[in-house]
Design a binder for these strands. Structure first.
Length: 763
DNA sequence: GGATCTCATGTTTTT
DNA sequence: CATGAGATCC
């Protein structure tokens, strides 16, 4: 078999494993995608399995698409009926097919995203007369989502304290609101499939019969609901192959549990286990450094990654003065590497939080370098895009009161709060959804209603539009429907107000329009589903010749010749929210590990001396993870030395230029590089830019930190008069620092550091 | 009824 | 600092 020749022994063992449960533990870059694609080909060719009987679940839609392409190439295009996609999209497809068997939903159900969910929670709180200040929707949603991921329905919810009791009630009401809207949230897609399978053995049997061979990628990031689903599906034939790496589990906060790997072992004691340790991506040096970092996690299965790419360039570790300088250093490094023959799309710049992309973007723009941004202000979350989608959803599903609420009066059409409320009441009394009520007003001349002339006109006019679009939907394509909506609502004039931002917003609308135009045959239902389930990483288009800016999370599964990981500071990369929990800290470490192992040839690590985490810049401590990289793998000096260098550079900036350069009137950004036509390929929201001829002196002049001792949160200090206390907060103010101390005797005091002469007695 | 302003509030990661 | 809610003004 020629296609098996290209595999190493472990890979071949996995690919040709006899049917049955198989667990593949695959280190980064060990060719797990190859294993999956070859396995599918093997099943079809060698074992005569029909593609119809295969289900392959991937982490992103993009991964699914690529995998399908590869398989098709290897098979010369002979695979109809193969099911491949993310858990969410596979579940959506199943539920769509089974709507007749669902209690609460009909065929046109829509998928609500996070923003919609927020609205639903608010509605639920209102229905229950609960104060959304006391019970923040975000928190409520969290509790609900966690429950759903654990397959806990409202009536199974065990409330052990007051807040949980409230959560349960909100959860119950939340589900009711969703049902009324004919809508599911992301978690429902998973949970409802499992519930359906449990309720209807006949339906489960049907899918067991179809999916006789199941393959799951990124198994370490499955949650309870996902695992429950595949376990049920596999129960009849036991042909299940999962690929995962617990060291790359980074979605615990979303309910993922890498312990599913252990559960799998327990549940299938006879499972064949294969370890993929040969890495085909990175240099040995990068692997050694990554291994040194991940080794510090407790309770892991040891893997001995190796590669034939011996040696490699040392990892470069640098400290920058602040986030600005860090970004500039990254960009100029890229520029010099470009001269060495690298292409712009060979580079990726990674960071922990989306907010960090800003300084980087600006540096790229200043340098006139092409870049593309993954995530951040996502295309599908933009106001104008959401508006248009809300219109489409409402036409598709008139029960969707969330979408209705979003656009009843956008653009404004004389339907204010009073009218809205009155209509709401009237709709309820008529047993109609708000949208249906509008339509009723428009088409039934004899209808009894409580509205005065002006309000009636506005309300029924909107109803007439809805009615017309609903009719149009039957015959027109999605694109044509969009055109009609945009035209008849005057949306263009509303959004395109002559400002640059307005222009951008309109461009985004047209972008969405062109997505619909790509496939004229797509139904409204399909289009909406597609749009609801796009993943961050789906928009990483390798064909674009630009450097990639992305979060460490979004980097999973990708690889780049040169990787920069920025913001390696305590509080950022281990994120401050993970300090007090061992498991979260371990996950932060895995996140760093995932980032490092994306690099093929070169890895650059950086941290900043000062960074504005929120408002005022603070002095940062280099990430604790950096200490775990052996010095001989690094091109860089020790922590102390780095900081001294930063300080000496910093002091040279303070005298290098005048302080008069104005930063108060940001100029408009020069023509942005449209590196791609794709959705969020290039940030479209303009941001205030610094003077283009900026110079080093524009950096905030560093403060003479020397005189004032630096206090850290949590330090025990002694004051001559107030006695002993603990530092609550310390923030720089001009040449000084303002320290907030909780004294055991006199309580909270705010002190000027230079004045108070606090004695540090313990860290 | 609608637009604009101010104030407060809260910030990880995303299907 | 960015978004959202509430108040105020038109």
């Amino acid at each position: 078999m020629d296609y098996l020749d290209t595999l190493n022994e472990a890979q071949r063992t996995a690919v040709t494993a006899p049917p049955g449960p198989v667990l593949v533990l695959a280190g980064p870059g060990s060719g797990k995608t190859r294993v999956l694609t070859h396995r599918i080909v093997y099943l079809i060719r060698e074992l005569n399995v029909s593609p119809w009987h295969i289900l392959a679940v991937t982490f992103t839609n993009k991964a699914a698409k690529e995998m399908r392409q590869r398989v098709e190439e290897m098979m010369d295009g002979r695979l109809r009926g193969l099911t491949m996609g993310t858990f969410h999209s596979v579940c959506a497809r199943i539920l769509r097919r089974e709507t007749d068997n669902l209690t609460w939903y009909d065929r046109d159900f829509v998928i609500f995203d996070t923003a919609d969910q927020q609205q639903v929670v608010k509605q639920a709180l209102k229905d229950l007369n609960l104060d959304d200040k006391k019970f923040p929707p975000r928190k409520m949603l969290n509790g609900i989502s966690n429950a759903k991921n654990e397959l806990i329905t409202p009536d199974l919810y065990q409330a052990t304290n007051y807040i949980a009791t409230v959560t349960q009630r909100v959860y119950e009401q939340y589900q009711k609101v969703l049902h009324n809207n004919n809508a599911m949230d992301f978690d429902d897609l998973l949970m409802n499939v499992v519930l359906l399978f449990d309720e209807r053995p006949d339906i489960l049997a049907k899918y067991q019969q179809q999916f006789q061979h199941i393959l799951v990628d990124e198994f370490q990031d499955t949650n309870t609901a996902q695992y429950a689903m595949i376990k049920r599906l596999a129960a009849a034939h036991n042909n299940i192959l999962v690929v995962g790496d617990s060291d790359q589990s980074i979605y615990k906060w979303r309910g993922a549990d890498y312990r599913n790997i252990n559960r799998f072992r327990k549940h299938y004691p006879g499972a064949q286990q294969i370890l993929l340790e040969q890495n085909y991506r990175s240099t040995q040096l990068i692997l050694d450094a990554s291994k040194a970092v991940i080794q510090h996690n407790p309770n892991r299965v040891h893997k001995d990654l190796f590669t034939e790419r011996q040696g490699g360039d040392p990892i470069v570790l640098r400290e920058a003065y602040n986030d600005w300088e860090e970004a500039d250093t990254v960009v100029s490094m890229i520029q010099s590497l470009l001269l060495d023959g690298y292409a712009p799309n060979d580079f990726a710049v990674m960071y922990r939080t989306n907010a960090q992309s800003r300084a980087l973007e600006e540096a790229f723009v200043r340098a006139n370098m092409p870049y593309r941004l993954v995530g951040a202000t996502q295309f599908y979350k933009r106001r104008e895009v959401k508006d248009l989608i809300a219109y489409l959803r409402l036409v598709h599903n008139p029960l969707d009161s969330v979408s209705y609420g979003r656009i009843v009066n956008v653009p404004t059409r004389g339907i204010g709060a009073k009218s809205k409320e009155k209509l709401q009441q009237w709709a309820v009394s008529q047993g109609l959804s708000p949208a249906e009520a509008h339509i009723m007003l428009a088409i039934d001349p004899d209808v009894q209603h409580p509205f005065n002339g002006r309000a009636f006109n506005a309300l029924s006019r909107f109803g007439a539009l809805l009615d017309a679009w609903t009719t149009l939907r039957e015959t027109a394509s999605v694109g044509e429907l969009m055109d009609a909506i945009l035209e008849q609502t005057g949306y263009r004039d509303y959004i395109n107000d002559g400002t640059e931002e307005g222009e951008d917003r309109w461009a985004n609308v047209m972008e969405l329009r062109s997505v619909a135009a790509e496939d004229t045959a797509v139904t409204l239902s399909e289009f909406l589903e597609q749009v609801a389930l796009v993943a961050e990483a789906d928009n990483v288009d390798a064909a674009v010749n630009a450097s990639t800016l992305l979060t460490l999370h979004a980097a999973k599964g990708l690889e780049f010749p040169v990787v920069f990981i920025t913001g390696l500071e305590d509080g950022i990369l281990p994120h401050s929210r993970s300090f007090d929990d061992i498991e979260s800290m371990a996950e932060e470490r895995r996140l760093f590990y995932v980032g490092m192992t994306r690099a093929k040839d070169r890895l650059y690590l950086s941290h900043a001396f000062r960074r504005a985490v929120w408002g005022e810049p603070e002095v940062m401590v280099p990430s604790r993870f950096l200490n775990d990289i052996p010095a001989h793998l690094l091109d860089g000096v020790g922590t102390q030395k780095r900081r001294e260098q930063t300080k000496s550079r910093a002091s040279s900036w303070s005298w290098s230029g005048s302080q008069t350069t104005s930063r108060t009137t940001p100029s408009r950004r020069s023509a942005p590089q449209r590196t791609a036509r794709k959705a969020n390929a290039v940030p479209t929201t303009r941001r205030a830019m610094p003077e283009p001829n900026y110079q080093k002196s524009d950096f905030e002049p560093p403060r003479p930190e020397t005189a004032v001792p630096h206090y850290k949160t949590g330090q025990k200090v002694r004051h001559v008069k107030f006695g002993d206390g603990i530092v609550i907060e310390s923030k720089p103010t001009g040449n000084d620092a303002e320290v907030t101390v909780a004294f055991s005797d006199v309580g909270l005091k705010r002190l000027a550091a230079s004045f108070a002469k606090l004695e540090i007695i313990d860290n």
